[in-house]
Design a protein around this nucleic acid. Sequence first.
DNA 1: TGACTTTATGTACTCAGTCCAATAAATAAC
DNA 2: GTTATTTATTGGACTGAGTACATAAAGTCA
Lengths: 186, 186
Amino acid sequence: MSARDRGRPKTSSLAALEDAAHELFLEQGYEGTSVDDIARRAGISRATFFNYFSSKSDVLWVDVDHALAGLEHYLQHSGHLGDALRAVAVEHPRDRIPLIVTQSEAMGLGADLAASAGIRLERLRGILAGSRVEASDVWIVLGALVGVLHQWATHQAPRVELGDALDEGLGRIRTVVGSRSVATLF
Amino acid sequence: MSARDRGRPKTSSLAALEDAAHELFLEQGYEGTSVDDIARRAGISRATFFNYFSSKSDVLWVDVDHALAGLEHYLQHSGHLGDALRAVAVEHPRDRIPLIVTQSEAMGLGADLAASAGIRLERLRGILAGSRVEASDVWIVLGALVGVLHQWATHQAPRVELGDALDEGLGRIRTVVGSRSVATLF
DNA sequence: TGACTTTATGTACTCAGTCCAATAAATAAC
DNA sequence: GTTATTTATTGGACTGAGTACATAAAGTCA
């Protein structure tokens, strides 16, 4: 797009901050790690941290937020939910497993995890509600979808490609949730 | 039980703080209301507020938390999930509709609502996982259940008794989620 | 009256998140 | 080269949630 290389270049990156934070979370626990700690280890200032992330817990959700943004972007053009889901899933590297799933106890994640997860659930719920999902079906479809993703992250990745897991999962949902509208969604 | 009327009696109550907070949330918005404001209106000190609620957002979830506690308590004795759900639902007055559902925009609820909702979702998820729900079915059952409750709160209450809505909803889930274990759950 | 129990309160503290003004580092135009 | 413009970094002051704790207040019981 626009935004060529004008202005002062960035000193750090999402990935660098992610790495620094994850190290510290594993060493000291999530609660025991302050934003100052993360910034210090990444070699930036505290103020700059909030230039990359708008909250401490956002560091845990880089991949998921990226996927959600992709989903929203996709749906602005082609309207089909199933297509958008598949497109985003295919783009997702099979070895990128949200460490929220794999190492939540190791990081001492607790209420903060559930709370920040709530933000993402609400975002996905909004996406579903904005699609052709019937209002009364939104929650069960949301649950079904998250179930498929969670199953992939915990038991299938990185063996199985996310796109394949999703395909199979959506098929199962289609037959299981026999509701009127759901059949044409995916 | 125990705990007769010993010690200094409480000055306030959950309900009183709830009322004060709701007034302020409607007047000034959720974000625009500090814990100090709530305490002042209720005639207690800020420190005492945290004696009744462990966080500001907990004020929004009194009914839900009460129901969740009842559910957990019920399941410690009789193990049947459906029985426990029905028992808690029947106890719930039909005119007590969580105002999170009805007045969330009026209060300017945003990320805080989603985040605190996440805590309750995780709690309910834990309850389901602790029941006989198969691990791979937990999320879809959770979604189905929340969908039924949300539908009741938004479109049926207070016309319909929560217990009845739940019965009908669970029946629908049973036929719709034809999965192996789910049939015997409710 | 005095021991005991529970609640209320003030105070000091940590930390997340916001705001903003000042500075630094790059490019583009002249 | 010098200057204007753009974008990023930084320090510092600030708000407000939540914690910790020591102390006072208000009741019951012996």
